[in-house]
Computed example of a mutant assay.
Amino acid sequence: MLLQRLEALPVGSFHYKLLVITGLGWLFDAMDTGLIAFVLPVLGKEWGLSAGQMGAIGSIGLVGMAIGAVIAGSIADKFGRKAVFSATVILYSIATGLCAVSWSYESLLIFRFFVGFGLGGELPVAATLMSEYAPTNLRGRFIVLLESFWGVGWIAAACIAYLFIPVYGWHYAFIIGALPAIYVFFIRLHMPESVRYLLSKGKVEEAQKIVDDLEMRLGVKYTGDLKATADDVPTEKPKLKDLWSGKYLARTIMLWIVWFGIVYSYYGIFTWLPAIVYQQGFAFVKTFEYVLLITFAQLPGYFCAAWLVDKLGRKYTLSLFLCMSGVASYFFGQAQSAE
């Protein structure tokens, strides 16, 4: 069967190339999300924004991400992962560029919403595409490595803030954030469409060609049935309500709770950390230095998790890092100085 051949492919240059292509999307997403965290202290002072207004600017993008994630998933099932991935990258790039020319608090809110909408739409599509091509025995590792690009993106945002905002102002940070639109050309050239998506749309020959090409590039000679069979083509379309059926109910609830806690604490800390440190009396440049150091600490965690996830399993690796994060967060809250 076609899907069995896809699952049986050995890890090769194709998988790492796809990891880089989708990972760059995550990197640009994180860079864009991180930019607003570093811009807020400067923007708040320049525009004389209240705490409530700064909170709205920092949060409106997350609202857009929530809506974009829900809508983009359905659209990707209809038009394909590749097309939606490209469209969302263009959307948040253009919206970020428009943030640079914002003329008022209200206009910035609108542009940040569309930035979030594009970001939220791109993230799950990239992760889905990577998981569909990653070998079963190493799927966890590839997904964690994909998410490690998020940490690199925050580092990029911190570097942009450190090097450009003090010298050129916050406008240039957003202009740089618009550059990922150019990346779409590489997506169109080097990213394959999802085989499962093609099969679901009855495009069997196109799916067959992708698998044939991959086997040839990876030096695989499949000895079984080379043709797609009826088992490859899904007969029943999954529905959102299936997540709340008896089979998935417990894991859905637990994953929603865990993911809510992770996102709540992560964005709560990283979005507001530059502003909090600045409010403690540190200069802009010093603030960026501290946050950049903390951001770098994410990378060892990602790489360690990528190694452990296929050794200990998803559940135990997640539990271990959640416990470590809880302990570290407690002591972070008790800190009396930036040092």
Rank of each mutant, 00 (worst) to 15 (best):
L243N: 04
A127W: 01
A69S: 15
Y162T: 13
A161P: 03
A207C: 12
G73Y: 11
G219Y: 11
L214R: 14
I269M: 05
V195E: 09
S194R: 04
A69M: 10
A76H: 13
P300R: 11
F79R: 12
L240G: 07
Q279Y: 03
L62Y: 10
K209M: 10
K82M: 01
F114N: 10
G261F: 14
D232V: 09
Y266M: 11
G281V: 12
L249K: 15
K209L: 13
I71T: 14
T317G: 07
K82A: 07
G151K: 08
Y330G: 06
L312F: 13
F164L: 15
I60L: 06
G61P: 02
L179Q: 04
C99G: 03
D212P: 00
M31G: 03
L6P: 12
I257V: 15
P166S: 12
M1W: 11
D212L: 07
I294S: 06
F113I: 10
I143N: 13
P180A: 00
V144E: 04
I276E: 00
K45W: 00
I257P: 05
I67W: 02
L189I: 14
R314L: 06
E132Q: 13
Q279A: 13
Y172D: 02
E215Q: 15
S245N: 12
S325I: 04
T252S: 13
G301P: 11
W272R: 06
Q298E: 09
G44P: 04
Q334V: 06
V263N: 05
E46V: 12
V309N: 06
L299P: 08
L240K: 01
V291P: 01
I165Q: 00
T252Q: 08
G61C: 06
V220Q: 09
T235S: 14
I67F: 13
Y133V: 06
A37G: 15
G153Y: 00
M324W: 03
L293H: 01
D225G: 08
K45M: 02
L308I: 11
V11P: 10
A134C: 09
V89L: 15
S86I: 14
I71L: 15
P180R: 01
M191N: 08
K82V: 04
A161H: 04
V39A: 15
E206S: 13
I155N: 03
G169I: 14
P41M: 10
L108S: 07
V39D: 02
A228Q: 09
M54S: 14
A335I: 06
L123V: 15
A335H: 12
Y183D: 08
M54R: 09
